[in-house]
């Protein structure tokens, strides 16, 4: 067992555990913190896969910005556990059964049919961080310039939308 593989297995365990922690915790704040942990482990996976830029984006945008936003909203709305509900009694067992089916099907399909040729990943050492950044930047600002600009407009629109949605209307209430 190589060092890489060991690292992977440990991290995978942490990732699954933290995801389950988010799924099962009663308190929304705990859930958010578990998710942060999960995102950070995924960021490490990106490093292992030779994508340092994405790893950093993952940490700053997801684990940083997005989750902080979540925490703010949780603070705003309260993190208490919800009272028990009697509607949809069949929801939980059905959901678990079907999810397990989905996981099995998806993994099987991805591994057997959708997988690209060549089934081992390159060792992480081969990828030079500066080179990766340079190429990524080049691609982003040449071939993908238009999508890039469109995304910037999308972010602006989302910002305006968020403000408009949460703004209290004058004299409405």
């Amino acid at each position: 067992m190589t060092l890489d593989l060991a690292l992977f297995l440990v991290l995978a365990l942490v990732a699954v555990a933290s995801a389950l922690g988010m799924l099962l915790s009663r308190n929304a704040v705990y859930a958010a913190l578990y998710l942060v942990l999960n995102f950070v482990t995924v960021a490490v996976f990106y490093l292992l896969l030779g994508a340092p830029f994405i790893a950093m984006a993952q940490v700053t945008v997801y684990a940083g910005a997005i989750m902080v936003l979540f925490l703010f909203v949780i603070m705003l709305l309260g993190s208490d556990a919800l009272p028990k509900s009697q509607v949809l009694p069949w929801q939980k067992p059905l959901a678990i059964v079907m999810s397990v089916l989905l996981a099995a099907e998806a993994a099987y399909l991805l591994v057997t049919k959708a997988k690209p040729a060549g089934d081992v990943l390159p060792p992480a050492e081969l990828v030079n961080t500066t080179e990766n950044l340079r190429q990524l930047g080049n691609a982003l600002f040449t071939d993908y310039l238009l999508p890039f600009e469109v995304v910037s407009i999308l972010l602006l629109v989302a910002m305006v939308g968020a403000i408009v949605l949460t703004k209290k209307e004058k004299g409405a209430r």
């Binding site: 509607v87 949809l88 929801q91 959901a95 089916l101 989905l102 099907e105 099987y108 399909l109 049919k113």
Partner: peptide, 22 residues
């Protein structure tokens, strides 16, 4: 009208389609 049960229906559809592909 419960959004969760709609989500369950979507999942059912996904599982069926994936099963068909299998």
């Amino acid at each position: 009208g419960f959004v969760r049960s709609y989500a369950l229906s979507i999942l059912l559809g996904v599982v069926l389609i994936l099963g068909y592909l299998l």
